[in-house]
């Protein structure tokens, strides 16, 4: 068991962000589920809890931030490696790009915390007297390059036709235009840990960004997430079945956003 697997359940790296995202609003009898992305957090906002981690991701995923990138989804799972899925355009030709480090970058942060005594190992049920997880620290260090720049990156790129690309951009845009904080009357959700996804789209007019840690089943955010996953899978598998799956998730996204497409976000 790695340090991250061992300790991460005890330490929710994103709990503050989830808490402050307005997800703890008391639910009402006729509450709606939160089915929209949330504005991104900042360092000065105090909700950007570990800027060094985000900076590592930004450096490793740099290619997905280049000019010509039209849309992007950065996926931050709890126990698996992070990844980015992007759609880029060059002179009218579109390509899906995916990047995934072979080691979870979060492990560097967990390691630093363990060394600093911020993460302790619990023996038996004695939660009050944790001990420094020296064995796990040593095992983790042995399995990790000393410098995160040296972590190998799995890279995939595949062409996609213009029609599908434009439908993906339109889908991203429709959901991202609705980015807002939890509104009164929306159902409260406590997210203590889980996958966190950051979305971005540019249409030449403006840059839109938003994130989620919770996507209700059958909603717009879940459909957007599904489309990103299907893009990633199509790049990895490059077969007819994966393309069919991408088409079906794209159609699902279009169905979900249809009523809202083109409208100003509701307040």
């Amino acid at each position: 068991m790695t340090l991250t697997e061992h300790i991460q359940p005890l330490l929710d790296k994103r709990l503050p962000a989830a808490l402050v995202a307005g997800m703890l609003i008391a639910s009402g009898a006729s509450a709606r589920e939160v089915d929209h992305l949330l504005p991104e957090n900042s360092i000065i906002g105090g909700s950007f809890d570990i800027p060094e981690y985000d900076n590592k991701l930004r450096v490793v995923f740099d290619e997905a931030y280049a000019g010509g990138v039209k849309l992007r989804m950065v996926d931050l799972p709890s126990f698996e490696t992070e990844s980015v899925t992007a759609l880029k355009e060059d002179k009218g030709a579109y390509r899906i790009l995916t990047l995934e480090p072979e080691k979870q970058l979060w492990t560097y942060e967990a390691l630093a915390m363990a060394k600093a005594g911020q993460i302790k190992k619990v023996a038996g049920n004695d939660f009050e007297h944790g001990v420094r997880p020296d064995k796990e620290i040593a095992e983790t260090e042995a399995a990790l390059p000393a410098d995160f720049h040296d972590v190998k990156i799995k890279r995939c790129e595949i062409a996609i036709d213009e029609a599908r690309a434009e439908r993906l951009i339109a889908g991203w845009k429709a959901v991202l235009l609705e980015t807002k904080y939890t509104q009164p009357g929306e159902e409260g959700v406590i997210v203590t840990d889980g996958v966190q996804d950051h979305f971005y789209v540019s249409d030449g007019l403006s840059d839109l960004a938003g994130w989620t840690a919770y996507a209700p089943e059958g909603g717009k955010v879940a459909a957007l997430d599904g489309a990103a996953v299907a893009m990633f899978d199509y790049c990895a598998k490059h077969n007819a079945a994966a393309l069919k799956k991408l088409d079906s998730t794209l159609a699902d996204l279009e169905t979900r956003i249809a009523p809202a497409a083109g409208k100003a976000p509701s307040k």
């Binding site: 900042s42 360092i43 000065i44 906002g45 900076n55 991701l57 280049a66 960004a209």
Partner: peptide, 26 residues
């Protein structure tokens, strides 16, 4: 909404480290 590291840096390919460092100092 605030702009963050997760947004684009189309004009400058360098990660926006200066902004992040400034915010951390603040």
């Amino acid at each position: 909404p605030e702009t963050t590291l997760f947004m684009a840096a189309h004009l400058d390919r360098k990660p926006p480290r200066l902004d992040a460092d400034y915010d951390i100092a603040v």
